[in-house]
Design a binder for these strands. Structure first.
Lengths: 186, 186
DNA sequence: TTATACTTTCAGAAATTTCTGAAAATTCAA
DNA sequence: TTGAATTTTCAGAAATTTCTGAAAGTATAA
């Protein structure tokens, strides 16, 4: 079995980006391969195509399942596990975003909330004020993100196409209000 | 010099999260420390407070400057560089988002665009269709993000408070259209 | 039940990233 | 200029992450 030149480019790129996206190279390459492959792939296919060990494929498969990016497909009379992408590109992107938010934002929000509790004395301190501002930001972001990311892909597309426009309207109304021009921002 | 218990909790947490956010532990801890510190800190202060080498502080400072998260402040008659946060928590968050998008999204969009060019034959292939869908997603996201992230913090806050509401209106109109209920999504 | 086809596990090897600290480079007051 | 104060650099050490492959575990066809 062999990859097309285009698939290989894509797979190699995903391997390089993987660590920036929160998983390791094999996980990234496997995801790329599975997404581009028309037919379900089993562990031996993948091990051979990516030239990595069978054990590595097994660990990466578990990781992809824990991210809910792939599902296992089995055919009667065949004992092998076949991996398939768990939805459209948009579904996968939303899944990645949700998982990353859980790992990259939620723990910090939790720590920040805890700190605010213990800092009820010193309400004026610079540290306390900064932590308060971070709490407000994360709180707002977290709620907004969960709402938006749970929308169906088609609705999300529509919202994003509006997004910039909505912002521009806000900027416009603000610009007409004296004393708040962009240039005056410190 | 010494950190308060609260500052230490915050700093240690930022150190733990750093790799998930795209920088190393020292960079994360330094950012946390600088953000919470009322007065500007020099390299020796930081080296002592975080118990890391002077060279490490120098490298981390460069990294924070390349992310535009800190700026250097100098006082006449003192040769030391003093580091200060480059704006409010919101400013910093927007800066981090912009930089991460540049590192985590833009390179992939570039590769995907390139691949589409070379796949003008085989327009029906599954791989080509998947790459096209990824291109559309990244294109839309990239434009939307740049627009939104360049808004002033106050405007962005207002937009995020609306965000969920705008989405809900869309869901609502859609739900009234037969044949597209959420439950029927495949 | 048994044999076998497969998956999972995990100790240690390999690869990668981060950190140290001494030497080199730079800056600036005198 | 000079030289002391400071920052930067970078080779190698340390820490961390990823990967391998053989052994153990599991599931299923016969």
């Amino acid at each position: 079995m062999q990859m097309s030149a285009e698939t290989e480019t894509f797979v190699v790129h995903f391997g390089e980006m993987a660590s920036r996206w929160g998983f390791n190279r094999t996980v990234g390459q496997m995801l790329a391969l599975i997404v581009l492959s028309e037919k379900p792939l089993n562990a031996d296919d993948i091990s051979q195509l990516l030239a990595v060990s069978r054990g590595n494929v097994s660990m990466a498969a578990k990781e992809l399942q824990s991210w809910r990016l792939v599902k296992v497909h089995r055919e009667p009379g065949d004992r092998k596990d076949y991996l398939v992408a768990n939805g459209s590109i948009w579904d996968l992107a939303q899944q990645v975003m949700a998982e990353r938010k859980k790992r990259e934002v939620d723990p910090t929000l939790s720590v920040v909330r805890g700190l605010l509790m213990t800092m009820d004395d010193q309400p004026e301190s610079h540290a306390r004020q900064q932590i308060q501002e971070m709490n407000d930001l994360l709180e707002l972001f977290s709620k907004w993100f969960d709402d938006v990311n749970n929308m169906q892909p088609e609705h999300l597309k529509a919202l994003m196409k509006m997004g910039a426009g909505v912002g521009r309207v806000l900027e416009m109304t603000q610009r007409l209000t004296p004393g708040s021009k962009k240039q005056e921002r410190p």
